[in-house]
Design a protein around this nucleic acid. Structure first.
Lengths: 200, 200
DNA sequence: GTATGTATACTGCCCAGTGAATATACACAA
DNA sequence: TTGTGTATATTCACTGGGCAGTATACATAC
């Protein structure tokens, strides 16, 4: 059992999360994760078969919280689809200003492990992004947008593009630009309704 | 001097290019690069002060060829700005279908080395993307687009987003979706001209 | 005979994963 | 209540290999 109230396995994942997100997968040794979790390496290998499995668990632990955050930002106000989606980008830009921000853990992992296409962590990352895309698609479809699937992909591309670009330039304003582009694309796809005036 | 006609330094960079692009920076040892170049490690260290410097040289060697390729695809036909830019995405999608394709070397390096913000390789990557953005901006400005700077950023976001997403899902069709979004955004920003009918 | 370029052989360190033993918890029989 | 077996959880110490970078010496060219 765990030393403190928190189970060992969970403590290891928390340590892995912080280290892998900060320094990348190959930049962090299993020893470092074990040390940060206050556990010997042998104990870590009792809970995880290999480093690869630990990496997968790290990403799996980020899946739901991330999606929940996006949904929360979206739902903070009911001010119309373009504004609601743009708010996701604005909140992300705010996060990106924190000095410890280092982009999207899923994308960075897939970039680092690009030579291992079947890696379990990459599958988890792909599933995560598919869930986000599906949520957007359903949201757009419910709003009566005909090309909901295509639009959802376009928003996803802007989102992941801003992760990559902001990480490279360390300039979160790109995320606001992406939000504006998303706003414009959604606005243009929205069906005209009584009482709702479309731009231009 | 070099064993063959090609200078040693160049052979090393060629070897580094192939290995780093395929397996990532931390996934490739200096020994491996030296071996692939047909040179001992000591010789490699005669030409490059450190692995970091070698990584920077690897990316510097991709800068101009990449930009030239984009410009070439753009100029293949003079069929209007939206189509010309969309052609870049279509050609990229074609490249992405090759099994050895592994995304954008600049973005993958910046993702892998995100914990070393001042790394020379990251600076080279950032400069490369800035050059591309500037080229787009100037092209748009020459076409009389008022918000040329903002539009250039949006296209860049779509491009880099498609690099990231296609790498994750191994589905190049996202690049075509990005091209369509770029087409729509440029079309919407283009000034109305005599004889040119805008969509919708 | 000095600049450049290349090679052999080495140092010190880090790293993923393992062998063998120990400790704790709990079920159940005496 | 106490003894005992079994599954879970954890530790220490280790292996075999890889890695970035270097000390030293040799070769070639002008």
């Amino acid at each position: 059992m765990a030393r403190s109230g928190i189970p060992t396995r969970e403590r290891i994942i928390t340590a892995a999360n912080s280290l892998f997100y900060n320094d990348g997968i190959r930049g962090v040794s299993v020893d470092a994760v074990a040390a940060k979790a206050g556990v010997t390496k042998r104990t870590l290998y009792y809970h995880f078969r290999s480093k690869d499995e630990l990496v997968a668990a790290y990403l799996a632990g980020r899946d739901q919280p991330n999606l929940a955050l996006f949904r929360q930002w979206f739902s903070e106000a009911d001010d119309g689809l373009p504004a609601q989606v743009e708010r996701i980008f604005r909140n992300l830009a705010r996060s990106a200003r924190h000095p410890k921000w280092k982009g999207c853990g899923f994308l960075r992992t897939s970039a680092e492990l690009a030579n291992l296409p079947g890696h379990p962590a990459i599958k988890i990352g792909a599933a995560h992004k598919k869930k986000f895309e599906a949520w957007l698609r359903e949201t757009f479809a419910e709003a009566g947008i005909a090309q909901a699937a295509q639009l959802a992909r376009q928003i996803l591309l802007l989102l992941d593009g801003s992760f990559a670009v902001v990480l490279l330039h360390r300039d979160p304003s790109y995320m606001e630009t992406a939000g504006e582009a998303a706003h414009a694309l959604i606005e243009a796809a929205l069906p005209v309704q009584a009482g709702v005036r479309r731009k231009r």
